[in-house]
Design a protein around this nucleic acid. Structure first.
Lengths: 131, 131
DNA sequence: CTGCTAATGATAATGCATTATCATTAAAGA
DNA sequence: TCTTTAATGATAATGCATTATCATTAGCAG
């Protein structure tokens, strides 16, 4: 289960996740890593994602109704933004916080998840060009 | 697809959703509605949930990594709180809002989702008793 | 009350992401 | 370089929520 050998596939997957700077789907990891190691298999992607997660190197990001994405673990509290057009997910370093005071008596807030949806910079620029 | 007959099953499912005052899983709808119509089948639950949704009477609530829940559609903007212990989901009428100003240049926020996790009143009271 | 047919109940089929299998390949220590 | 065995690639199997199927039941219009 724990990764013991530094294979080309492992390095490619880790590199891809590091350089993307955004959470990636297993399929996206496969596409991107295939550019480095063309024989890359989906099974290998899943195996390495599992290993990287067990080693606390990456963490999963799950948006409602979507498959898990994976990002390099950073220990800064953050949330996510998804573009409705290209469907890419970006990290957002904002947090309003202070939700406890809105809950009814007797309820305790221990954690929270905030997801923003809209249009990313790239898709916005794309549209401007088209018109 | 559209519901044309008011069956006992349909009424039971609608009643259960109305009285729960919180989003229910298909399985929870089955359990609760079975108390009213004991022969209720899971297929009937799914069929009616689909019909109610098509008629804009209910809406689905999807938490990350979980199966859809269904609640009577109310047109007030709200979010959800899930108890980590009993896993029930509650409606929360709070919204910090004003997320746009935290996004980098070029990004537009069109919608958002906020989910709070913690301990509900009932589970909190339960613990006090035990100790 | 009757007839028509939508809806139901029971269960098999589907879709699909993820995992298991197994023969083959290639890290990496000696 | 040789050996050991973890890791890979290809693909079959799994798990599980949801949907389809079809014979039977029951709304409801006339």
């Amino acid at each position: 289960m724990t990764i013991e050998r530094k294979t080309r596939q492992y390095e490619a997957i880790r590199t891809v996740l590091t350089e993307a700077k955004r959470p990636l789907l297993a399929q996206e990891v496969l596409s991107l890593a295939s550019a480095i190691v063309p024989t890359m298999s989906l099974a290998t992607v899943y195996r390495n994602l599992k290993g990287l997660q067990a080693n606390n190197i990456i963490t999963s990001v799950i948006l409602p109704g979507q498959n898990p994405r994976y990002e390099i673990k950073n220990h800064i509290h953050h949330h996510h933004f998804q573009c409705r057009y290209c469907e890419q997910v970006f990290e957002v370093n904002l947090c309003p916080g202070g939700f406890e005071k809105f809950m009814p008596e007797g309820f305790t807030v221990e954690d929270h998840e905030l997801i923003l949806y809209g249009e990313c910079k790239e898709c916005s620029a794309q549209k401007s060009k088209e018109s």
